[in-house]
Computed example of a mutant assay.
Amino acid sequence: MLDILKRINQLALKKKNEGLTEIEADELNRLRKTYLQIFRGSMENLLLNTTVVDPVGADVTPKKLRTEQARIRKKAIWSS
């Protein structure tokens, strides 16, 4: 992922300073989409493994998140 980010930054700098060819612009768009997919996937993974606790110590994880966590757990148990 760091390679992708490094290349995105190189192309963005070139775009700012001198402009990009059509091929480079396409590469930049493709790399940005790939980066966002990876980022969103890791955020989703992080959230699916998160529990929200209030200062008293009670579990206040939103129902929607708990439902999705349960769905993923059930799927993992039965899928092979």
Rank of each mutant, 00 (worst) to 15 (best):
G57N: 07
E18A: 13
R7I: 00
Q37R: 12
I4C: 04
E24I: 07
V56K: 13
T34S: 14
L11F: 03
S80P: 01
R71W: 08
T67I: 13
K74P: 00
S79N: 01
L47Q: 00
L48E: 12
D59H: 04
R66L: 14
A76F: 06
K15V: 02
R32G: 07
Q10W: 12
N49S: 07
L2Y: 04
L48V: 03
Q69A: 11
S80E: 12
N17L: 11
V53R: 15
L65V: 15
T67R: 11
I8H: 09
W78G: 02
G41D: 01
L28K: 03
N49I: 06
N45C: 15
I4L: 15
F39Y: 15
N9Q: 10
R32M: 09
L31W: 07
Y35M: 00
L65C: 12
I23M: 13
K16A: 14
Y35R: 01
M1I: 02
T50L: 15
R73E: 07
I8A: 03
E68L: 08
L5M: 07
V53D: 05
W78I: 05
T34F: 14
I38C: 05
D59K: 03
I23K: 12
E18N: 13
T50P: 10
L2W: 03
K74F: 06
M43S: 01
A58V: 01
L13E: 09
